[in-house]
Design a protein around this nucleic acid. Sequence first.
DNA 1: CATTGGAATTAGAGCGCTCTAATGGTCTAT
DNA 2: ATAGACCATTAGAGCGCTCTAATTCCAATG
Lengths: 347, 347
Amino acid sequence: MSRPTMEDVAKRAKVSRALVSLVMNNSPQVSDEKRESVLRAAEELGYRPNLAARQLAKRRTQTIGVLVDDLRNPFFGEVVDGIEAEAADHGFTALILNGHRDARRELDAVETFLQFRVEGMALVGPRVGDDDLARLGGATPCVVVASGSAHPGVDTVTTDGRWGAELAVEHLASLGHTRIAHMDGGSNVSAAERRAGYRSAMQAAGIGDFIDIRAAGDDEADALDVIDELLSEADPPTAIFAFNDLLAAGALNRLDDAGVAVPGEVSLIGFDNTFISALRHLSLTTINQPKLAMGRLAVGTLLERLSDGSGEPIRHTLKPELVVRGTTGSPSNGSARPDGPPGPHRT
Amino acid sequence: MSRPTMEDVAKRAKVSRALVSLVMNNSPQVSDEKRESVLRAAEELGYRPNLAARQLAKRRTQTIGVLVDDLRNPFFGEVVDGIEAEAADHGFTALILNGHRDARRELDAVETFLQFRVEGMALVGPRVGDDDLARLGGATPCVVVASGSAHPGVDTVTTDGRWGAELAVEHLASLGHTRIAHMDGGSNVSAAERRAGYRSAMQAAGIGDFIDIRAAGDDEADALDVIDELLSEADPPTAIFAFNDLLAAGALNRLDDAGVAVPGEVSLIGFDNTFISALRHLSLTTINQPKLAMGRLAVGTLLERLSDGSGEPIRHTLKPELVVRGTTGSPSNGSARPDGPPGPHRT
DNA sequence: CATTGGAATTAGAGCGCTCTAATGGTCTAT
DNA sequence: ATAGACCATTAGAGCGCTCTAATTCCAATG
């Protein structure tokens, strides 16, 4: 509005507008004397450069767009922390927009980013399909984090969902489980990979006959029906591998309702290692994703792409790790949870 | 960049730049014929208005800045959801920045907002002090959400922390507790209010002699030492009112470690009603804050201030509510956790 | 003393858009 | 036919900044 402009500062410091610009950009070729008087004038006026004007003149924005699938999911919060940190380290500002778990709104957000002329976009856990992504992105570099994409126009930073699923199944199998069911991620983009890992690990463990995949989702609420369904079977599974921690938490709720002891009667394992899984009273065994590293790497990828331009799609795949906590144990020892790792559940 | 400009579109559609501008702004005074050919040309070129240029020319940004204390705290996520929704309803874009639980970084973020020339700022749970706030804000309207501020230059949307604290204490007192301790929010801005509520409710309940306030904080980790301290007392409290859910979760962990039954030996109550408190295995009794409503109201306040300008500071204070779950019960019934009220599922 | 070179400073042309005022065209009322 | 009214369209002056090229200044040099 009526905020002071560079012109005002120039007048007050009795120098040219150009000199003020130099000072504001920390140019070394300004005499200390003038620099100081410009800074003083700016201070006195409460001057702040107008970013829009600067961006327009500079023809770059030093800005990256960060699209977050769901701000309420702490998993994404941590990834974004990593993104912001790395972006800041390289002089970029991260603009955060919320996808609200909805592909249409994601597209809107991307549109907004493009109008902002962000220099790159990091899509964290997007739901939108590959084609839309590539089409929309156009010339703007775009990295997908934690969701995988096969499209050549899009770089990715993911954890190896297949590997993670295998870790989960191996862990359960090594405890002696055979009837291991998978509550999958439904339409979530990462679901297929983890499903595949589950399948192959079940085969590898020689219990391929027990493969049992149930369509669920990625939110607590998505677990309820599936658990009911599983419990009503003649031979219910002794272990469940859930698509993510939230889903596992929902499962835990429902198992609890049904009076099923965890891990006494059913073992449960999640995915993500969000902070809720560490809460002692959940104490959820899970698969860790290195969230901070993923965020940083995402920005790294973007910068690489910015300076490089063309070339092969970049695919960073980080290794997930098994985090054993209190919701997994040997099958059918019938009693309350064994000592094992920390965190006794109630009976 | 080398993206198409309005000029390009104008040329291709064989009209003036001004006409393209009118079309892009949905002006009614454009003939259908021309409108269509402009839109077609824009489509073909993949034209997108340059927001920086538009903002510069318009001399307004239609943008509000949202500063979030901590993206990993689900409480804030929900508030932001409300803010975004209301902002969108009024044609504003919400720019989200992360405060990282650090006053200095908050100030940086505010600085960034001002450079962006946001038309208003919503600070969600800020840690920065009143004076800095008012000084920095300057002419830009600023609403503080969930953190209270006494400064006349700043509007606020809060839940009544005093009232909430009273609800908590009354609940515990009505269960028969007298030795009710308060793990307070430490330096958190909302801490004082809840502390005061705790005090007055203790007095009102005739158990003022048992007032016991322990400096803690607002994060899980902050609970550990305090719990140790409390448990080592000669006469440990039979109930604890924690500053927020995260702190309560941390307390729960520690109590668990120490083999103390909740609510058998100690009742525990949190604040915020974040989704983690609803997780069945925590099942935390807590005080609800209407997060979505707070977010929407924040934007409402900002808009009001924008059209109104001067005037008294606006203070919206919403009423919190008690949400009884499984971590509170009568004192010293010695046994394991009772069932608690049925199925407190969150939506 | 004129010349040179380098550093510090400035003039001025955009960046891509909006907005006011002016233009031209068409349609009625006189 | 003429004026007026009204509409769609356009010219052009900014918005607040950056950046290139030009200018000024001054000390050092031959």
